[in-house]
Amino acid sequence: MHLAHYLRLLHRSQNALAEAFREIRRGHPHEPDMYGVCECLAVQCGEQARRLEPFVRRYSAGACEEPERLHSALFSGTRPGGLGLLRDLHDLYLLATECEIAWSIVAQGAQGARDEELLEVVRHCGGDTAVQLLWLRTRMRHVAPQALVVAS
């Protein structure tokens, strides 16, 4: 049974996303409105990861060895400037997408495992991740024209 591996993947991705939200906030301290929202989303991601922990433990008991190359790093530090911010948000979007699809896969797994409790967590947290994606998309759409066409 590999559900534990996927739960671990999701758990790690959620924590990576939380850290990435904090890093982007620190890396762009002068960007308006990043402080509050990024901090709030970082907390949210951390909470989501914590809510997964009992299930990681639950399914780890019967898990086989973790396959190779399960994890990949999608975000490795912020870049300066307007274009840098756009690229950072873009990276975060990919990272959040990984979380989103992982929630969806875990939901299928939870259905297979007949785990109502896990399904409830996925329903709640998956919705939050969808809003995070929308926010990243909104933020990128707003800065893209200036960063791509105007700034030198």
Binding site: H30, P32, G81, G82, H142, V150
Partner: peptide
């Protein structure tokens, strides 16, 4: 027309030189 730019973003662009 794209999304409207709010005031502090305008000053941020000015600060960044665009």
């Amino acid at each position: 027309w794209g999304p409207p730019t709010h005031a502090l973003q305008i000053f941020r662009y000015a600060e960044q030189g665009s």
